[in-house]
Simulated assay, not measured.
Amino acid sequence: MRRLPTRPLAALATAGLLAVAIAGCGTESGAPRGTAVPGDTARTIRAQKVMQLTRTHEETGMTLLEGPVFHPDGGLFVVDVTAPPGKPKVMRVDVRRKTVRAVHTDGRGAYTSAQFSPHDGRLYLTDYAHGEVVSLAPDGGDPRTFFAGEVDGARMNPDDIAFDEEGHLYVSDSRGLSEGAAHGRVVRIDRDGGKATVLADDLAATNGISFDEAYGGLWISELTENRISYLRLGEGGEVASRHIAIRVDGGIAQTDSIAVDADGNLYQGLHGRPAVVVYDRYGEHLVTVEVPARAAGLDSATNVAITPDGTRAYMTVSGPGGGYLYAFDALGKGTRQSNGG
């Protein structure tokens, strides 16, 4: 999740927390869906439009889709960060029938990610504006505050979530974004919500977060430095080592959320360009997934979810033209870490 235009707090709690001028990058049409385009030195995949989910909200001046995640029954859940009170903040999409229905709304939350817990099966959402993690039943009912308050003396701006195999949460805390300061953190929260621990700090607006394919470490994106770092974890879940792994040449675009497929490839969403860049675990740029943005008025591709045990991938794409799902064929099969936090 990234900076949004300033609006009154009553209209949208996150407004003014994030602000980036975004510009779309158009692509040529006519290529087969989800296939590499011959002759492109950087190898390009053209994504196909699936359906429109939202329009620009009059109350907030925009729409911003995030957090695509598959439920075990095949439903794809998506959040709209900028949805005002009364409008759907969590939606469920049937990608085969191309239908969407509202799952949850409220008068307060600004949700930037969604993940299903392997521990209790509930849907967990990060409320960036209020520094909280909340959870819902899969049908959108029974809302609960899972975690709120300060961590090591500072309130979080939680952006994305990754669950380990036992159901403990690893949260990208984007503190310092509005000031442009490197106060970002990675925070681990026990699955019962009783203990929160800072695993890494002094990060540049921590955004995307995902385990690698073997759960041996965390890939994290730092939005204001356009880089991806790797945190190798010890046996107790602590950070054993940390290094900058990939520098993303984004231009005016910035590194957003991250998904990882079964082969260990990273799908890095971009805010400010309707594209996803894909790297292998060694940092080699494999492909770029492009959206024909200028015709559709789209300028960000924030996140990716890959069908579990399949290769069909779905991107959340947004801009003045509305909020859409686009699809392409991923390089590897989907797993839990392929649902971008």
Rank of each mutant, 00 (worst) to 15 (best):
G216T: 08
D40W: 14
V289H: 03
V69D: 11
S172I: 12
M51V: 07
M62K: 05
V198G: 10
I246W: 02
L223H: 10
D142Q: 04
V248C: 05
T316L: 04
D139G: 07
I306T: 06
D261E: 01
A10L: 10
L125Y: 03
R33G: 01
G250M: 01
G34M: 00
A154C: 00
A200R: 13
D201W: 10
T105E: 14
H271N: 09
L199T: 13
M315A: 12
Y267M: 00
T112Y: 13
Q254G: 00
L18W: 10
A196F: 05
A13F: 12
G167K: 03
A293H: 09
T288N: 06
V186G: 13
V81E: 15
G167C: 08
G16E: 10
P8S: 12
G193Y: 03
G107L: 12
L17H: 07
E28N: 03
T311E: 03
F70I: 14
L223G: 00
T44N: 06
H168I: 01
T6K: 09
G341A: 02
V171F: 09
V289G: 02
G322K: 01
T14D: 14
I189H: 05
A110M: 08
T82Q: 10
S229M: 00
R97P: 12
T35F: 01
A36S: 09
D329N: 07
T126R: 04
K195F: 03
L65F: 12
G216H: 13
V239A: 08
V317G: 14
I209Y: 02
P118K: 08
S241D: 11
L4I: 13
F70K: 14
N207E: 11
V186I: 15
S113T: 13
D263Y: 00
E58P: 07
G236K: 13
N157H: 14
G272I: 02
Y324C: 08
E132M: 15
N303W: 01
S338K: 02
T44A: 07
A148R: 14
P320H: 00
G323N: 01
D127M: 15
Y324V: 05
A21W: 10
T255Y: 03
V289M: 02
T105C: 11
G283V: 05
A162H: 03
G283R: 06
E58K: 10
A240H: 07
G269S: 00
D164K: 04
A21T: 10
I228N: 00
A295W: 07
G334A: 11
G141A: 02
A42D: 15
N207L: 12
E235T: 11
I306P: 04
R55W: 02
L9S: 10
Q52E: 08
V260R: 02
D173P: 10
L298C: 12
V78F: 08
Y230F: 15
E284T: 09
L233S: 12
S117V: 05
L218D: 14
S135N: 03
A13Q: 15
P158Q: 02
P5C: 05
S338N: 04
D80S: 10
T206Q: 13
L12P: 00
T99Y: 03
M156P: 12
V248H: 09
A214Y: 08
S178K: 08
E132F: 13
I246G: 03
N303A: 12
T54W: 04
I228K: 00
